[in-house]
Simulated assay, not measured.
Amino acid sequence: MGVTTVGERLLHLTTIYHEPDIHQYPRATQILDRFPDAERIEVPSHQNIPGLYGNEGNVRDWVRNKRNVLVLGVKKSLTARPNSRSSDFIAPSTSNGCAMACSYCYVPRRKGFANPITAFVNIEQILGYLERHAGRQGAKPEPNQCDPFDWVYDIGENGDCSVDAMVSDNVRDLVELFGRLPNAKASFATKLVNHDLLDYDPRGRTRVRFSLMPQAASKLVDLRTTPISDRIAAVNDFVEAGYEVHLNFSPVIVHENWLDDWATLLDQIDAALTPAAKRQLACEVIFLTHNAGLHEVNLGWHPRAEELLWRPELQERKRSQSGQWNVRYRSSAKRTYIGQLTQLLAAKLPYCRVRYAF
């Protein structure tokens, strides 16, 4: 019996929904050729798939849809949205959705009871837009928390690029683009170790942010992801391959003895990283944001996670920048939590710069 690869564990595509006239795009042909046995079903648009989105019954098939279903569409709106935390700009998405099943993920909140990968096939248009946009920015006038020298573009806001790279060459094309731009770099957070990315040529101009949390919490809420210890070990490999590698401590989930768990994790990181990885290390700290709608969805497929995520006695409602009502830790207590964790970081990983914490 052969060994199951990461890709085979995450993806066994049986159905590909696609927009009309998708075959005019070479990237669509590449993807369809990669998965020749999957049934092809034409749909009006990637956002209008009867029986998939908006079907509450699909909650019972949450993970099956992620493994078996792929959607191909054309990204119509090409804009680079200004950002101020992890990146200077949010690049136009080349995907949304994910084959992994993190129970706190915000993307399903807008999709309606199913969240498989949607891959956008007009990659040439997206690359051209990004190159022109970066060209218009010129040199970065002064350092900021995103980067001291380059404009930073987040290329994975609505998915996980390490997973997307198993579907198509979109991620490879983005890494190659930013590898030759003189004033900009790409950035994405990931919870999967995809060793195929080590064969790319990032030239120091793609920042991979490995998302980490204590293993006990991860085992409950980070479903279908790479184990935390393997993500930590991968930092050294990706630095050696020419990537800039940061850590994304996210989401930070408050529970009894949470700081003890974080102390153990930080000791594990310190013991694993090489001097080269430590010299270039920085991190971001993001405390949990949850949502009542997602809470209800999760109760339908993974209620145990909600025992950790849904803590009304610790949380309060707050309207997000997009206008949604979310729940976050109460602001007065959250200030204390942030101070406790950043102090722990300074003691355990003094070489790791905290780019921001909220």
Rank of each mutant, 00 (worst) to 15 (best):
E244L: 10
S322M: 13
A241W: 02
Y337P: 09
V245G: 03
R231V: 05
D230I: 00
L344E: 11
I232M: 10
T264E: 13
F238T: 05
T226Q: 05
L344K: 12
Q215M: 02
W310E: 04
L341A: 05
I338E: 11
I232C: 07
D267N: 13
P251R: 12
L281F: 01
T336I: 12
V285T: 10
R317N: 09
L341E: 08
N257H: 15
F238L: 11
T342N: 10
V252L: 12
A263F: 00
V252E: 08
L247Q: 05
R330Q: 12
H290N: 11
L247R: 03
S229Y: 02
L309T: 10
R317P: 04
I269R: 09
R317I: 05
P303T: 02
N257D: 15
E313M: 10
T342L: 07
P275Y: 10
L288M: 12
R304H: 06
G293P: 02
G293C: 03
H246A: 12
G339V: 06
L294Q: 15
W310R: 13
A292N: 12
E244I: 04
A217L: 12
P227Y: 10
C283H: 03
W310G: 01
I232R: 09
A271M: 12
K278L: 05
A333K: 10
D261H: 10
V254N: 03
V327Q: 13
Y337G: 07
F249M: 14
Q268I: 02
S250K: 07
G339Y: 01
Y329E: 08
R311Y: 02
L308K: 03
K334F: 00
D237N: 06
D237R: 15
T274D: 06
Q321K: 14
P275T: 05
N298R: 14
P303N: 08
D230F: 03
D230M: 07
A241Y: 02
A217W: 00
T342Y: 07
G339D: 13
Q268V: 02
G300N: 12
E240Y: 04
E296I: 01
L281Y: 01
Y329V: 02
T264W: 01
F249Q: 08
V297C: 06
